[in-house]
Design a protein around this nucleic acid. Sequence first.
DNA 1: TGTAATGATACCATATTAGTATCATTTGTC
DNA 2: GACAAATGATACTAATATGGTATCATTACA
Lengths: 130, 130
Amino acid sequence: MKLITRNTDYALRALCYIAKRKNIVAVDELVKKLGVPRPFMRKILQQLNKAGILVSYKGQGGGFRLKVNPEKIYLFQIMRVFQGKVGLSGCFLKKDICPNKGECVLRKKIHSIEADVLRQLKRVNIASLV
Amino acid sequence: MKLITRNTDYALRALCYIAKRKNIVAVDELVKKLGVPRPFMRKILQQLNKAGILVSYKGQGGGFRLKVNPEKIYLFQIMRVFQGKVGLSGCFLKKDICPNKGECVLRKKIHSIEADVLRQLKRVNIASLV
DNA sequence: TGTAATGATACCATATTAGTATCATTTGTC
DNA sequence: GACAAATGATACTAATATGGTATCATTACA
Ligand code: FES
Ligand code: FES
């Protein structure tokens, strides 16, 4: 079981690098510095752009920069982009139409743990990683 | 992203049921009560048996019972049986031989979050779910 | 207008998860 | 002892998620 997948991890490193450089950074530079396969890196950056975390510039001299301050980009956000929402572990029984949902202790406990994990992930920002 | 997979979930429910019944329970009974596919349920129970969480009895009147008190069976253990260790999200860069390992802030942060998740998972026992 | 960059999209490979099928072994009951 | 009722072991299949490639379109600077 892993909390963080590869694309989240790469994304984090890319963001950290871009945050340090404080400038527009092109894919090629990131690829060289981080050793991630170029097409994969491109895809990841494009996703971050779509998610509103990066801003992209096309054409010569183009690349990516952070859209907001690194203090305002949270681990939580990045994970959501690449790994979807946390907390989908609903009732698997009876095709998710469990009548028991309201009182189920298991469900409640798991939810509270998930909530706690989220709270932590929301506290880690890119600035704190640089 | 889901913290808990299906087999962990089924296992938990099965364990809760067995804990309540305080008796030897056969697969057929669990299948009827929980609505989980029979062969899948069997596989799960066998894994729990191997993991030392259940004890099995063969032959007529056979089935499964808890090996230890439900207070001493933790969510953490069950997850480990079906989902492996938590915390494998090491450095994906450079084929896991990152020279940077010692000082990497990202790594440290993630580790501390993982440790926290584990701490919580270790606190939830089957008795508290029944 | 050429070229250096990203955008969009479709595709492929591998791993993990979810589930099935089958036969062997043990054990209580007649 | 024979038989049936249970689990043990193991191998297989299907679906989904992850990790990654390939290709062409679009934009914008020089
Ligand atoms: S049994 Fe359905 S939500 Fe818990
Ligand atoms: S960069 Fe390798 S462990 Fe963080």
